[in-house]
Design a protein around this nucleic acid. Structure first.
Lengths: 81, 81, 81, 81
DNA sequence: GCGCATTGATGGCTGC
DNA sequence: GCAGCCATCAATGCGC
């Protein structure tokens, strides 16, 4: 019967994921720390967040535009076959 | 006038945060990878996620929520008999 | 050449889809409203959502998932004793 | 004891939400239909989706820019108080 | 059946 | 201190 669970294997997986989750939480913590420092230096955290978000959006936008271009190009190629 | 912005300082902050965001994204990537491996080994990712979430939850709170859920469900079942 | 686009036709399609999207957004809004009212009446929205989700689920499938979850949890508990 | 549940009230809430969910599903259905028609007319559904998404993004972008502007204006006002 | 895109849910942050 | 808001994250559903 293959329904039996390989306990060691399962626990290894669970442990790895839990570890990754902790690492991620730690980074979130660090990020908050940086925002706190920035605030102490007089920067408005809210604006800072918006700026970062905007910078990220701009990269995404570029990627997005390329994707769209590819899509159009593909359509044209198919249309002219 | 103190409104002038220290460009270097600001960029340092922004860069640090972007770096942390990237690190976090990388970990998210790794996590997805682990789930994919687990799936390949025959584990159901959906259940796996539930298990991880459950392990993280406080058991008292969990019991409480279940009790309330039963209460609601019971009321509805009686109402539709 | 048939590659030329019928602008009016295309716009009609786009407009219809946008309209449907708006309608959907409006319903989402209404739904949030109902949850808010329910909360004001003392119902826990989180539990309420779980109840609705549960009612929608096929009960066989639900039992199956719970069984598998128990299997995983049992293996982990035994492993950590 | 106030923990007892007003069954009729609860069911009314649940029913309203379920109804809204159905309406939403119906709209989703309609949308799929429109995409199917468009495809039959020779439009590439994939591109169509991207176009719609882009149009939506552009509106969002405008709103976003206004929000950012407000944020900056607020910061300046606070800074000059 | 997979990957993706959208949508729904949760937790954290901010302002009152 | 809490409610509302936002941003992230999980999950379902869709098209390929």
């Amino acid at each position: 019967m293959t329904n039996a669970i390989n306990t060691g294997q399962l626990m290894a997986i669970v442990t790895r994921i839990e570890r990754l989750n902790e690492d991620k939480a730690a980074i979130t913590e660090d990020t908050k720390q940086v925002y706190a420092e920035a605030k102490a230096m007089g920067y408005d955290p809210k604006i800072l967040r918006k700026v970062i978000a905007t910078l990220r959006q701009d990269s995404n936008k570029r990627a997005e535009e390329e994707a769209m271009m590819d899509l159009y190009m593909g359509a044209i190629e198919r249309g002219t076959q």
